[in-house]
């Protein structure tokens, strides 16, 4: 049975779609079977970031409404064979996502894939709560900036109360993915430090993705950054995060720092990882 991951944040534009594509591709590049699912119905973008926009025939809403079977809607990636995309619809809205329909589709995906990664829409409304509903693990995407941290805190509250796991009294596994991080600005004191965000949100760190032109280049080309330029700094950070998701314990590298941090950060991480 596959594991369901929701990539969520509350705030828009923080890097959810970028991270869904990159983490999904990174796991598939290790040979695992991955389906990335676009829950941003009405504003679909995952297809574009993955370079599959011209191959979309059926979408999530079609499968939910029974107009298409799951295999007809899944698009296989041209570069990574074990990576598939279930696109969102552009013409309908979120009301077409029914809780029962979502449950059925996720259940079916779990039978065929090792990982199901759900790209959440922004906000805390229906679309976002449906995307997180059946998750086993949440990746909370946060920028080191006040409004993003505030929205992530709110999303953590929802993950702990509105998911199937939480409702059945289980603990929802949550990880922080800090994106668009700029070490130089953090050092100057103009950006929240990694430790600050970790302390405020109190969830373990999955990785730190640097602010980088390579991310823009990759989305221009229509490829997850781990595929477009696997040696780039953001790609390496996403590979590291994917390995942690898969259960490996690795020290966190702060992008732009000269050597692996022996400071507070690594202490925080090793304590959590222990």
């Amino acid at each position: 049975m596959g594991k369901v991951i929701v990539v969520t944040s509350g705030k828009g534009g923080v890097g959810k779609t970028t991270s869904t594509a990159a983490l999904g591709a990174a796991l598939a590049q290790r040979g695992e079977r991955v389906a990335v699912v676009d829950f941003d119905v009405g504003l679909r973008n995952l297809d574009l970031v993955m370079g599959a926009e011209r191959r979309v025939v059926y979408d999530l809403v079609n499968v939910i409404q029974g107009d298409a079977k799951l295999p007809q809607a899944l698009i296989r990636d041209k570069r990574v064979e074990t990576l598939f995309l279930l696109p969102a619809s552009q013409t309908r809205d979120k009301d077409n996502l029914t809780p029962e329909g979502v449950e059925r589709v996720i259940g079916e995906l779990k039978e065929h894939f090792d990982w199901i990664i759900c790209d959440s829409p922004a906000g805390i409304e229906r679309g976002a709560t449906l995307a997180m509903r059946h998750a086993d693990v949440a990746v909370v995407v946060t920028n080191p900036e006040v409004s993003s941290v505030r929205d992530s805190d709110r999303i953590i509250g929802l993950l702990d109360s509105k998911t199937v796991k939480a409702e059945s009294g289980e603990r929802m596994e949550k990880h922080l993915l800090l994106t668009r991080f700029d070490q130089a600005r953090a050092e100057r004191g103009d950006m929240l430090k990694v430790e600050d965000v970790l302390e405020i949100l109190s969830i373990p760190l999955l990785g730190i993705i640097p602010e980088s032109m390579d991310v823009l280049r990759a989305s221009n080309l229509g490829a997850p950054v781990t595929v477009a330029d696997s040696r780039s700094a953001p790609a390496m950070a996403y590979f590291e995060a994917a390995r942690r998701l898969a259960g490996e314990t690795l020290p966190v590298t702060v992008p732009g720092e000269k050597r692996a941090s022996g400071g507070l950060l690594s202490k925080i991480f090793s304590r959590r990882a222990a």
Partner: peptide, 19 residues
């Protein structure tokens, strides 16, 4: 003056109540 410590304090106070 660096602004990040102010951000951190404001967030901690705000979130304690919002939660």
């Amino acid at each position: 003056q660096s602004s990040a410590p102010v951000a951190r304090e404001r967030l901690q106070l705000l979130l304690a109540h919002e939660r």
